[in-house]
């Protein structure tokens, strides 16, 4: 009979147990935390962040990093609003065309990011950070620093139309997550991400075309950032040059807290889902239990460290950098 309580199993389920423990903790302090309505609120907060985190998961699994998300989201969100408004201002009037266009634009920006990293041999950290700044700058240039409102009721149904108590955008994010899982688990590209992240030289020697895999990874990440941008516009009904703010911290933290190793090759989109939920639950729970605001940042930091300690397998790595 296979043993259930193995070390591997403990590590695999640790992030989920951390999430469960947090839910129990917050519920014990304020029972209204454990309600369907509050879970819907957490889900709304988590949906765009999940898309960003899923995008960057592929990159982190490859052992690279992508910090362009804030700029890419701001730019694609602003472009999306301008495009829909130019196409008549509602999805029904032809504005829906903006959705595929923006998804392709996101992937194209990701591809540029990848090309800078791979062709110019600039570390992904620097290349993506710089491209992120370019994205924010372009968004400022387009908007002139102003807010672009987009309030089509059909589009906003993503937020206002509820099925079983959860808004439509939560289901959209769920479907995109399944798509990401499919790519990760059932495509050659997905397996190659792990091969590159586990050992690039080895992957190269085994015939994996590492450069192409990296380019595909960054394009895929850009595609998911564009989904996040559209969901974010659905959530707050506007786009501006700071629409992408805070997503960098939120997504990278979530990915790590969920148990995806920053050195690559370990973890996947399910870890990311749990990580995003952990961060969203902490953010929501701290207000719900009435923690004073001057303690919140410190508590968030501490909880993140604890979550990482519990949820990553550090024994298998020789060193951490």
């Amino acid at each position: 009979m296979p043993r259930i309580l193995t070390r591997e199993n403990a590590i695999r389920w640790a992030p989920f147990l951390v999430l469960l423990a947090l839910v129990i903790l917050f519920t014990a302090i304020n029972p209204s935390f454990l309600s369907q309505r509050n879970f819907a609120r957490i889900a709304i907060a988590a949906a765009p962040a999940l898309m960003v985190a899923v995008g960057v998961t592929f990159i982190i699994v490859m052992g690279s990093i992508d910090l362009s998300m804030e700029g890419v989201i701001s730019l694609t969100a602003v472009l999306f609003c301008f495009l829909v408004l130019a196409l008549g201002g509602t999805l029904a009037s032809g504005g829906w065309i903006a959705i595929p266009v923006i998804l392709v634009a996101g992937a194209a920006i990701g591809l540029v990011n990848g090309l800078i990293h791979v062709r110019l041999k600039i570390p992904s950290f620097m290349a993506s950070l710089a491209l992120g700044f370019v994205g924010t700058g372009a968004a400022i240039l387009l908007t002139g620093g102003n807010i672009v409102k987009f309030d089509d009721p059909t589009f906003r149904a993503l937020l206002t139309w509820r099925i079983l108590g959860f808004p439509l955008m939560v289901y959209v994010a769920g479907m995109c997550l399944v798509l990401a899982w499919f790519i990760q688990a059932h495509t050659r590209l997905g397996r190659h991400f792990y091969a590159v992240g586990g050992g690039e030289e080895l992957a190269h020697a085994s015939g994996v075309r590492v450069r192409q895999v990296r380019l595909a990874g960054f394009s895929l990440a850009g595609f998911f950032y564009a989904i996040a941008a559209i969901l974010q516009v659905a959530k707050i009904g506007q786009a501006e040059s700071v629409t992408g703010s805070n997503f960098m911290f939120m997504s990278i933290t979530s990915v790590v807290v969920g148990g995806v190793a920053l050195w690559g090759g370990i973890g996947g989109v399910w870890n990311t889902l749990v990580g995003v939920l952990i961060v969203a639950v902490i953010n929501n729970g701290m207000v719900v239990i009435g923690l004073p605001d001057f303690l919140q940042a410190a508590v968030l930091g501490l909880l993140v460290i604890i979550a990482v300690i519990l949820s990553t397998d550090r024994r298998s790595v020789a060193f951490v950098k």
Partner: peptide, 12 residues
């Protein structure tokens, strides 16, 4: 965005 999320938590 912070305003949205804080308000949601306040509602809970």
């Amino acid at each position: 965005t912070k305003g949205t999320e804080l308000m949601a938590s306040f509602l809970t």
